[in-house]
Design a protein around this nucleic acid. Structure first.
Lengths: 198, 198
DNA sequence: CAAAAAAGAATGATGGTTCATTCTTTTTAT
DNA sequence: ATAAAAAGAATGAACCATCATTCTTTTTTG
């Protein structure tokens, strides 16, 4: 009984892993169920036992992607002892965000959100969480900011994160280190925290 | 003879306009040639007289999109008299970039660039032009920057622009004004130019 | 009346989805 | 505990719509 549940979850992950790999290479609409099935080492029909449609797979994948990011966000509350300054420790979490294996799908999700309201919902939720978390965990680390600027500063950091996904995806030669450095500089500058260690 | 040429160009634009409208709604791979033909008010077969393949249309559209941006970049050299500060005048050009009609396709292009090397080429070219132009036209407007930071500042501004397309596309409720304000604040802050007029 | 422009009907491949069917595992009855 | 019965997991071929592309035919134009 619990055995069944366990197996079902295994299969679902199997499908999502395969779909993720296919979507990464071909995009949501370029990948076919047949190829996803092959990648998942199971039959096409069987996939439909776990997901009602290809769209449902896309949604589930979006959720899973951002579940990973939410975990990161939650963990950022209690940062362990680090050789970095608190702000830099916070910033360095974004290596997750710009992982070249992760970025293309994230970008695909953003693009899809423009047409698919269900995907837009998921994106909207994570955007809200992201803002809340910055409010709670990042702003206290920074110097005092003009009250009127706070919202804009948070928005700008969000823009920067999305920009990172875009650049990492679109430019194969983009250097993640270089991009993280630019991000770091921009965040420090937005927080008016000029003690940027080099 | 020149009549023919003229007509051909008209037809090509007609096709690109139609394709743009379709891609905006359905994405590159969601849109079909049949629907593009309908939108262009011509037959499917006829389209193939002007573009060898659907992919060729995608490429041509990418080129045309960025041709518009390059024009903008070139024009930014000689800015007319403006009530805004020079930096703000420069920034305000980016309303082009975040036009909600334009942004989704731009984002789709970035996503596609991750898989289609031809598209990546176009993106890479415009990225280079963008950097050059900032070097020439934006930096002189700013205060003196630490030499080591210059590259990072430019990179950060690029991240911000791409982030804007992403946000505008993915979040239907995103307020362009608000996003531009965040961009403005971030650019001023990166240029260490604190005279932000409100 | 040619020659280019345009239309639109084939074409064959491929799309997502469904379905009848066969294995495999679990439950029930003895 | 073992055999029969029921349920669930898994398959892959069949479905029909649609895809990008090509071919043939008609219309327009110079």
């Amino acid at each position: 009984m619990a055995r069944r549940q366990e197996r079902a979850e295994l299969r679902q992950d199997q499908i999502l892993d395969a779909a993720e790999a296919c979507f990464l290479v071909e995009g949501f609409h370029g990948a076919s169920m047949a190829r996803i099935a092959t990648a998942a080492k199971m039959s096409v029909g069987h996939i439909y036992q776990y997901f009602g449609s290809k769209d449902a797979i896309i949604i589930a994948l979006c959720e899973r992607r951002f579940a990973g990011f939410e975990e990161l966000l939650s963990a950022s509350g209690q940062s362990a002892a680090s050789p970095l300054s608190p702000v830099d420790a916070w910033i360095s979490q974004f290596t997750w965000w710009i992982d070249p294996i992760r970025a293309p799908l994230t970008l695909e999700i953003m693009s899809e959100a423009g047409r698919n309201p269900q995907v837009a919902k998921v994106v909207e939720r994570i955007d809200r969480r992201f803002r809340e978390m910055m409010q709670d965990n990042l702003l206290p680390l920074a110097g005092p900011l003009p009250k009127a600027d706070v919202a804009h500063v948070l928005e700008a950091i969000i823009l920067l994160s999305h920009g990172m996904t875009s650049r990492i995806t679109a430019d194969a030669d983009a250097d993640p280190e270089r991009i993280m450095a630019a991000f770091r500089l921009a965040v420090h500058s937005l927080l008016r925290d000029w003690a940027v260690g080099e």
